[in-house]
Amino acid sequence: MESNPNEGNKQQSVSQRIQSNRQNRSGLMIIESLVPKLLLLASIISVLVTVGILYTLLSEAITFFTQVNFFSFITGLDWSPWQGRYGILGLVSGTMLITVIAMVVAIPVGVASAIFLSEYATDKWRRILKPILEVLAGIPTVVYGFFALTFVTPILRAIIPGLSFFNALSAGIVVGVMIIPMIASLTEDAMSSVPNEMREGAMALGATRFETTVRVVLPASLSGIVASFALGISRAIGETMIVAIAAGATPKFTLDPTQSIQTMTGYIVQVAKGDAGFGTTIYYSIYAVGATLFVFTLIMNLLAQFISRRYREEY
């Protein structure tokens, strides 16, 4: 009989039952007050990660700058760490070159795909095309890098004589392809948030679909589209494996895409896979390069957030 809790309850007086409820309640209350604190702790960890990144980059970069002049670092064009010359612009120019090539590929193709998906495609096409773009976005970058080196580069070398085996062009194009899904999906999101009444209004005035897109939908979703460009640039700057595999490892201050270059990310990989010992200047240099990289990507990310917040049109 005692095993049945209801029977047990019946034998208790009301005051006893209130008492025992209260006791259970107090155990519950401890959990209730403990849980939010634990959850807050977990959320704080994501803040700690940011703090950790800033601390790591700053402290190791500061050690680097006790050995290398800060001014010659940010203005130097020659990056030859094994000869003791640390001019970051030699790497930044490589990163810029890759980024520009990537955006030349990704912006027109990404926006055009978004326009097709959002304005022209039927539901059936959309259901086929969107998952394919998602697949493209899910491919590991080391695979893209391998493809750039063994497929895109040979084709380009057949077209462009004098293209070196490792070159900025091939890597840049493939980085661009990698970013297409991102720009396409963010742009499409921005375009599909434009209300249909606006499209119908334009069409009722006799506009073709193309005129509606260019004169109504695109201007109305411009902030989202531009923000997606900024995020795309940030991704291109931070992209590592494609450039490490296909762009080469010769830092050069050049705008010539047919040459082998090195990006900031490529340099970090080169040092990481070699064995520059802990505590050497070269070891600290990857943090100075990492800090520069972090600043560039942070600026683009903040820019994207600023644009989409500041210029968003509310309907």
Partner: peptide, 28 residues
Amino acid sequence: NFIQTNIQNLAGVPSIVFGLLGLTIFVY
């Protein structure tokens, strides 16, 4: 708001920077 913005910004940090974080904090 701060935590939320922070998460958003972390998502945009290049993956190699997390490598540098791990190398310093976890490895050393």
